[in-house]
Amino acid sequence: MSANPAATLDVAALGPYLEANIPGFRGLRAAVKFPTGQSNPTFRLEADSGLYVLRAKPPGKLLKSAHQVDREFRVMRALEGTNVPVPRALFLAPEDNPIGRMFYVMEHLDGRVLWDPALPDMTPRDRAEIYDAMNATLAALHDVDVEAAGLADFGKPGSYFVRQLGRWTQQYRASAVEPIADMDALIAWLERHVPEDDGQVSLVHGDYRLDNMMFARDENRVIAVLDWELSTLGHPLADLAYQCMQWRLPHEGGFRGLAGVERGPATGIPTEAEYVAAYCRRRGIAEIPDWTFCLAFSFFRLAAILQGVYKRALDGNASNPERALEIGKNVPRLAALAMDCIREDS
């Protein structure tokens, strides 16, 4: 059986190409794929000049507007020197390169990626500090001056939620394998309840969660926000609701959610209300309207993303096929959780 094409790189061809395009790069010895991640295959490059990270589009036929690694590269370059920590982006390769698909190379950082939001084996103080650091970084992201950062054209004009609902409905329909009644009901409800555009626009990450950031080895400080593929100009509450969805996701079946996990002083994990209140204090917000819509939309969007992951696994193009098949089957569960949010508020 042939190797998964998303899991290998031609080191012999890639090395000289990187030496010609990245100042100081020399002696590529190995490209080791990180086992995690579903969208864009990511590799640790081991070279005589040090360690680097390469992130590429997956091989095969791709959905339109998906896997835009060039957008990731651009936003990380733009955020250098701001209060949002990112790895230094070193080089963006066009499609015509030795691996045959667009990729970029960034610096390798030595830090901790925390995969379980329950943060087992940590003290309540550590958990509280980690969640507060995430909250502060999210607020800092939404306070970035997009014009000063050169990102004024990083998103389309008009209502973010209208645009995103249209985009992800289209992506979901393109990758659907069989009908899911709750997804159809959810899409219909969201289309009927899109809030009026209030004019708020900020840089949004699009996949803001614990395991998409890196913490320092010896302190609970965020040293990098990672995985900017879904970033755009949009409504900041979309990012906040997407992260708060974690409080409602199960801690099983391929999910690492906080449903059933104790929150409060005994564990150091804030409640959803406490986390939202801290964000509002940092950004000077009095209240959050349309919170049910924001949460339901977040579940829908994640379901649409995972449907695409599942379809790529069935087509043989997934970055992590076994994991993709597992989590892709959770699309109906996400749609049901979204409908639960709607029913709770009705």
Rank of each mutant, 00 (worst) to 15 (best):
M1K: 08
P5N: 07
D10E: 06
A13H: 06
G15I: 03
Y17T: 11
N21K: 15
I22C: 03
P23V: 11
A30E: 05
A30Y: 04
A31Q: 05
A31C: 06
F34P: 11
Q38H: 12
S39L: 08
S39M: 13
N40E: 09
R44I: 12
A47H: 07
L51S: 14
V53W: 05
L62R: 11
A66I: 05
H67F: 12
Q68D: 11
M76W: 04
M76T: 11
G81L: 04
P85S: 12
P87N: 10
A89F: 00
D96F: 05
N97F: 05
R101D: 04
M102C: 13
V105G: 08
V105Q: 04
A118I: 06
M122D: 03
N135M: 04
L141V: 06
D143C: 06
V144N: 10
A148V: 08
A149R: 12
G150P: 03
L151D: 01
G155D: 01
K156I: 03
S159P: 01
V162P: 02
G166Q: 14
G166L: 10
T169K: 13
Q170Y: 11
E178H: 07
I180Y: 07
I180R: 03
A181E: 14
A188K: 10
R192L: 15
E196Q: 14
V201N: 07
M213D: 05
R217S: 10
S231G: 15
L233K: 01
A241L: 00
C244Y: 00
C244R: 00
C244P: 00
P250Q: 10
E252V: 11
L258W: 01
V261S: 01
R263P: 04
A266T: 08
I269Q: 01
E272T: 00
R282K: 11
G284P: 01
G284F: 02
E287S: 10
T292H: 06
L302V: 14
A303M: 09
I305P: 07
K311M: 14
K311N: 09
A313S: 08
N317P: 03
A318Q: 08
P321D: 06
E326N: 13
E326Y: 10
C341F: 13
C341G: 09
I342M: 09
R343H: 03
E344W: 08
